[in-house]
Simulated scan of single mutants.
Amino acid sequence: MKLFFSLLIFLSLTNLSFSACVAKYKANLRSGPDSSTALLGTLKKYAPLKVISKSESNEWVQVESHNLKGWLYHTLLDESIQCIYVLDKSNISCPGKEEPDAIKIHYKSSFKVVEKSIGCNLVEDKWRRRFWVSTFNIWPKESAMKIVIPNS
């Protein structure tokens, strides 16, 4: 019973509110909380983000992507869903799950997480295609379901 509650607590902690996803087809990442600041890059739909802070007005959100850090306008984010990048398309198969079509997955492909299983996530791409991918090579690692056995 103690293990069950420890697992339940850990799984709830892996879905912390610091994660967000790009909600629009693309989003411009800025160097500051204003549309007139320098453009650092463009993020695609379902790009996973870690929320760092918010502007005083809460209109701009400072975020970290896999390799970029900057500001996005708040309407471009969705904090209610979890997303991942697949960093390496080798080792993407999940034992006992439907094999993903390798053509669908490219370096830094971004997906919305639909369901979690230990070692695998059921994901959806921007075209609403669903398939299972291994959590071995994903970012952020917090999106992987893990079992932790606490020391007694």
Results as ranks from 00 to 15, higher is better:
Lys108Asn: 09
Asn91Gly: 06
Lys54Val: 13
Phe111Thr: 10
Ala102Pro: 15
Asn67Ile: 03
Trp60Thr: 01
Lys50Ser: 12
Lys97Ala: 07
Leu68Cys: 08
Glu99Asn: 10
Ser53Ala: 11
Asp101Glu: 13
Ala102Ser: 15
Leu76Asn: 13
Pro100Met: 05
Asn91Ala: 10
Ser57Arg: 02
Val51Ile: 10
Ile103Asn: 15
Tyr107Ala: 11
Leu87Ala: 02
Glu64Leu: 07
Lys108Met: 11
Val51Leu: 03
Asn67Met: 04
Leu77Arg: 00
Pro95Asn: 13
Leu72Arg: 06
Ser57Gly: 01
Gln82Glu: 13
Trp60Asn: 02
Val61Cys: 11
Gln82Met: 13
Val61Trp: 10
Tyr73Gln: 02
Lys54Gln: 14
Gln82Leu: 13
Lys69Met: 07
Lys97Ser: 02
Lys104Trp: 08
Leu87Phe: 03
Ile105Phe: 11
Lys69Asn: 07
Leu77Asn: 00
His74Trp: 05
Leu68Val: 08
Gln82His: 15
Gln62Ser: 15
Ser80Ile: 00
Gln62Phe: 15
Gly96Gln: 01
Ser53Cys: 08
Asp88Arg: 02
Ser90Leu: 10
Glu59Phe: 03
Pro95Trp: 09
Gly70Cys: 01
Ile103Ala: 14
Lys108Val: 06
Ser80Thr: 08
Ser110Met: 00
Ser57Ile: 02
Val63Ala: 12
Cys83Asp: 10
Glu59Leu: 06
Ser80Arg: 06
Cys94Phe: 05
Leu76Glu: 11
Ile105Gln: 06
Tyr73Pro: 00
Ser65Glu: 12
Tyr107Trp: 11
Ala102Arg: 15
Val61His: 09
Ala102Trp: 14
Ile84Met: 03
Tyr107His: 12
Ser55Thr: 01
His66Lys: 07
Ser109Lys: 09
Ile81Arg: 06
Leu77Gln: 00
Gln82Cys: 09
Lys54Asp: 08
Lys54Arg: 15
Asn91Asp: 11
Glu64Asp: 07
Ile81Cys: 03
Ser90Met: 09
Val61Asp: 06
Asn91Trp: 05
Asp101Thr: 10
Ser55Pro: 01
His106Ser: 14
Ser93Arg: 14
Leu76Lys: 13
Lys89Val: 04
Lys50Phe: 12
Gln62Pro: 15
Glu79Ile: 06
Leu72Tyr: 08
Lys50Cys: 08
Ile105Ala: 08
Ile81Asp: 01
Ser55Gly: 00
Pro95Arg: 13
Ser109Met: 08
Gly70Ala: 01
Asp78Gly: 08
Gly96Ala: 02
Ser110Phe: 02
Val63Leu: 12
Phe111Gly: 09
Cys83Met: 08
Glu99Met: 10
Ser65Lys: 12
Gly96Val: 01
Lys50Gly: 09
Gly70Phe: 00
Lys104Cys: 03
Val86Ser: 07
Ile92Ala: 09
Asp88Gln: 04
His106Cys: 10
Ser110Cys: 02
Leu77Ser: 00
Ser90Val: 11
Leu87Asn: 04
Ile92Phe: 14
Trp71Phe: 03
Asp101Pro: 09
Leu76Val: 09
Asn58Arg: 12
Ser65Leu: 12
Tyr73Val: 00
